[in-house]
Computed example of a mutant assay.
Amino acid sequence: MASASELSSLFLSFLLFISPALSTNSEGNALHALRSRFKDPTNVLQSWDPTLVNPCTWFHVTCDSNNHVIRLDLGNSNISGSLGPELGQLQHLQYLELYRNDMGGKIPKELGNLKSLVSMDLYDNRFEGQIPKSLAKLKSLRFLRLNNNKLTGSIPRELTTLANLKVFDVSNNGLCGTIPVDGPFRSFPMESFENNKLNGPELKGLVPYDFGC
C-alpha cells in the first residue's frame, strides 16, 4: 500500500499534468468573458481557446515580450453583443479596436482602468448611454473615436485634462449641451461634433450649458 508521501507525490504529479489544460491568466479570463458576450456568426473568435495558459496565440490579440495583451483588433468583424467590466482587467492594453461592428449597450466605466491605452476606436456601432467620465483617467490616450453610435448626455468636462489627446470624434450621436474649449478641445475641428444636439462651443468664463441633457 502506498505511503502518505507517495500518495502526495502522485497527486502533485497529477496536478502538474492537468494544469496546462486548466490554468489561464487574468487577461485570458477577461477576454474569454468578453467573448461570452459576443455573437460571432463568422467564427472570427474561434481561436480564443480558454484552456491555453495565455491568449497570446489567439488571432486578433497582440502581446508584448512579457505575454501581456497590448492590442485587441476586432474592427469590422461582424460581431454583435456588448462590452463588460472585464475589459478593465487588460491593464497593459494600448489599442482597443472594435469599430464597425454591431455592438450595443453602454460603454463600461471600467475602461478607465486601461492606463496604458493609446487608442480607443468604438465608432460605427450602436453604443448608447453617456460617455464615461472615467475615460479622463487615460492619460496616455491619443485617439478617441466614438462617432456613429447612439450616445447621449453631455461631453464630460473631465476629458479636457487629457493632454495627449490628438483625435476626438463624437459626430453622429445624440449628445447635448455645449462643446468644451479647454485643453486639447481647443484644436478639435467642428466636424468632430457634428450631427448631435450640441449647442456649440461654450464661452470662456461661463458655466457650461448642459441643462436638459
Rank of each mutant, 00 (worst) to 15 (best):
R186G: 13
V53C: 05
T152N: 14
T160F: 09
S192V: 04
Q91E: 10
S36Q: 14
G200Q: 06
L151S: 03
Y95G: 03
F14G: 06
V69W: 02
F168G: 04
V181I: 15
P208Y: 07
P55I: 02
D64P: 02
L165C: 05
G153P: 03
Y99T: 02
S140L: 13
P189Q: 05
N113F: 06
S82C: 06
S154H: 15
L175D: 04
N173I: 04
G174A: 14
N101S: 08
L15K: 10
P50W: 07
P50H: 07
L135G: 05
L117M: 06
T62N: 11
N29C: 10
N25Y: 09
V167N: 10
S192E: 06
N148G: 00
M103W: 02
R126W: 00
K39S: 13
L96V: 07
N199Q: 13
S9L: 13
N43F: 09
R100I: 09
L175F: 07
K106W: 08
L162Q: 01
N125R: 04
L175S: 03
E202Q: 14
D73I: 01
N67L: 10
G174C: 09
R100Q: 13
D210V: 14
P108G: 04
V61E: 02
T161H: 10
A30C: 07
G104A: 11
L10V: 04
L151V: 07
C63Y: 05
M1A: 09
R126N: 07
N148L: 07
P156N: 08
C56I: 03
S5A: 15
G104E: 03
K197W: 13
N25L: 06
L122S: 00
N125K: 02
S19C: 14
N125F: 01
G129M: 07
A21V: 11
